[in-house]
Computed example of a mutant assay.
Amino acid sequence: MIPAHVPENRIVNFDIFNPPGVEDDYFAAWKTLLQGPGLVWTTANGGHWIAARGDVVRNLWNDSARLSNQCLAVTPGLGEVMQFIPLQQDGAEHKAFRMAVMKGLASRYVVALEPRVVEIAGELIANLRPRGSCDFVAEFAEVLPLNIFLSLIDVPLEDRPRLRQLGVQLTRPDGSMTVEGLKQAADDYLWPFIQKRMAEPGDDLFSHILSEPVMGRGWTEDEARRMCRNLLFGGLDTVAAMFGMVALHLALNPQDQRLLREQPDLIPAAADELMRRYPTVAVSRNAVTDIEVDGVTICKGDLVYLPSVLHNLDPASFDAPEEVRFDRDLTPIRHTTMGVGAHRCVGAGLARMEVIVFLREWLSQMPEFRLDLTQPVRMKGGNVGACITLPLVW
Rank of each mutant, 00 (worst) to 15 (best):
A241M: 09
S211L: 06
V239I: 13
D319R: 14
N253I: 08
V214H: 10
A320I: 14
G244H: 07
M242Q: 15
L232F: 03
W219V: 03
A269L: 12
M215P: 03
H208I: 08
T297M: 12
D319N: 13
A247T: 08
R276A: 01
M242K: 14
N312H: 08
G295E: 06
V324C: 11
R229A: 00
D319C: 07
M198R: 15
N253F: 11
E262N: 11
P254L: 10
I298C: 00
G202Q: 13
F326V: 00
L210R: 12
N312W: 10
A270T: 10
H208T: 07
K300E: 15
P264H: 11
N230I: 07
V246A: 00
D314N: 05
C299E: 14
I298V: 14
L210K: 09
G301V: 08
V239W: 05
G218V: 08
V214T: 07
I298F: 02
L210A: 01
D302T: 05
Y278P: 01
K196S: 07
G202S: 06
C228G: 01
R277E: 04
A199F: 13
L236R: 06
D327H: 12
P264E: 07
H208F: 14
V283G: 00
G234W: 14
E212M: 14
P201C: 05
K183Q: 13
L182V: 06
Y305R: 14
L313Q: 12
